[in-house]
Simulated scan of single mutants.
Amino acid sequence: MSRSVGPHTADPCPRCRVEAVRTGVPTTAEGREAVGYLCEQCTNAWTRPVEEDLEAYDIVRVDLPGATLYGTVRQVEGDRVQVGGTGGQWLLWAERRQVILY
């Protein structure tokens, strides 16, 4: 289960379960675009596929370099997604690889 750590969301390593904020890197896995992660504790590496079926009104998490945000998809254009915060607090474009469907 993920938890908040300051402005970010910390996720557990699938192997050792140590929670940390990890910056993913673009990669491919099984012929699909993916985001790769590395656990600094146990050196486990894993990937998650880039979301391909995002649609307007999906609830998502956006992993940005400065913060983790939660919001609703407004538009999807190619490799980028427009996400808005609750009550119009914010609106931004993010790369599809930064967006995780909730």
Rank of each mutant, 00 (worst) to 15 (best):
P49F: 11
E55V: 10
T43K: 14
G24C: 03
G36L: 09
E40C: 03
E51H: 13
C42D: 12
T28H: 07
A45E: 09
Q41S: 10
G31L: 07
A45F: 06
C42G: 15
L64C: 12
T27M: 14
T28A: 14
V25R: 11
T23L: 05
P49R: 00
D53A: 02
V21L: 05
Y37R: 06
R22T: 13
A34D: 14
T23W: 01
R61I: 15
I59A: 11
R48K: 07
E52S: 15
C39I: 03
T47V: 15
V25M: 07
V62K: 00
T23H: 09
W46M: 02
E40G: 10
C42A: 05
G31R: 12
T43Y: 13
T23M: 12
I59E: 14
D63N: 13
V21K: 05
A29L: 05
A20K: 10
A20D: 12
W46L: 05
L64R: 15
V21W: 13
C42T: 10
R32Y: 08
E40D: 08
A45V: 13
R48S: 07
N44D: 12
P26D: 14
Y57I: 01
V60P: 15
P49G: 04
L64N: 09
V62M: 09
D53C: 08
V35P: 00
T23A: 06
E52N: 04
C39V: 01
Q41G: 07
V35F: 00
E55Q: 08
A56P: 13
E33P: 02
V25T: 09
L54T: 15
C42M: 07
Q41K: 15
Q41M: 13
A56W: 08
V21S: 00
A45D: 01
W46G: 10
N44P: 01
A45N: 00
Q41F: 08
Q41V: 13
P26C: 00
G31K: 04
